[in-house]
């Protein structure tokens, strides 16, 4: 612990030796961590949007007019067992007639000379797996008592493709941003560390081990990571707050999101610190 205090003071002095570079490294990491958090928040919002759309994109099973209550109950039970089904609701022909008549404003029974609507089961999904749904619906269409099944397959597919593309793009973007900023931070910290090369030589000649110097480089990097992590947590908190006020909507961030952001900053700079120290030659020439 006593020795670590010396390493911490030397790491801190390395950061202070070229303060401009330290500010640059902290700003870079804060920016990239904040950007990653923002992308993550956007993905969470998109997930919410997808969920809302799914709740409104139902499949409709039109039953034959002469289907018995027993058969209808059987069909309902089987459909409820399908994977990803949240709810199955029976809508009687009378309810449909009332609903559509009120929408149109005329009595549709008079126009059609009877109730034109079949008994219907409305399926609400919580999650969709297209091949599964396709095969189940194809099978269900052949069941006794089922007249037709209508579902917005193409819309679902487009929505999923869109969201998958966004996710992939965001992931690639995040990786590129992190890689570029980590390389830049590595260059900055290495320039700082190498700037004290003569002092490191002195410490080695006074009996410090190369591992001790590596610890100094790690302390230097982790200090940058911690400061940048705190700044990015604050920045993301402000962004979240502004979003809530402007859009009157709240992104439900997962538990431990802010500590995770801070931890990400520290862990990333640990790697950078290790890379910084491993590239500096401490051994005999």
């Amino acid at each position: 612990m006593k020795r670590l205090r010396f390493h911490v003071s030397q790491g801190w002095q390395t950061l202070r030796s070229r303060p401009g570079l330290s500010v640059l490294a902290i700003a870079l990491l804060t920016f990239s961590l904040g950007l990653c958090a923002a992308v993550f928040g956007t993905l969470l919002t998109l997930q919410d949007v997808r969920q809302n759309l799914l709740e409104n994109l139902n499949a409709t099973v039109e039953l034959q007019n002469d289907v018995t209550d027993k058969r209808r109950a059987q069909i309902t039970t089987v459909i409820k067992r399908w994977p990803g089904v949240a709810e199955v609701t029976y809508i009687s022909p009378d309810s449909l007639l009332r609903y559509h008549s009120s929408e149109v404003g005329d009595d549709l029974q008079d126009i059609f000379g009877g109730n034109p609507f079949p008994p219907t089961l409305q399926i609400q999904f919580e999650d969709i797996s297209h091949p599964n749904i396709d095969s189940l619906i194809a099978k269900a269409a052949r069941w006794e008592g089922v007249a037709d099944i209508i579902y917005p397959r193409e819309l679902w597919e487009r929505l999923d493709i869109f969201i998958a593309r966004l996710r992939g793009g965001a992931l690639i973007g995040v990786v590129i941003i992190l890689l570029v900023s980590l390389v830049l931070i590595w260059l900055v910290l290495r320039a700082q560390f190498s700037g004290r090369r003569e002092e490191w030589r002195l410490l080695l000649l006074l009996g410090m081990t190369p591992a001790g110097l590596r610890t100094i480089a790690l302390v230097q990097a982790v200090t940058v990571g911690t400061i940048a992590g705190v700044f990015s947590v604050f920045g993301v908190w402000v962004l979240h707050y502004v979003y809530t006020i402007v859009f009157l909507d709240q992104i439900s961030l997962p538990t431990g999101f802010y500590p995770l952001l801070l931890l990400a900053g520290i862990v990333l700079t640990l790697f950078v610190g290790y890379a910084v120290s491993s590239k500096v030659k401490f051994t005999r020439n």
């Binding site: 020795r3 010396f6 002195l202 001790g212």
Partner: peptide
Amino acid sequence: AVPLAIDNFTR
């Protein structure tokens, strides 16, 4: 005091 810091002496 640097050599003593390396040798783990107290402050």
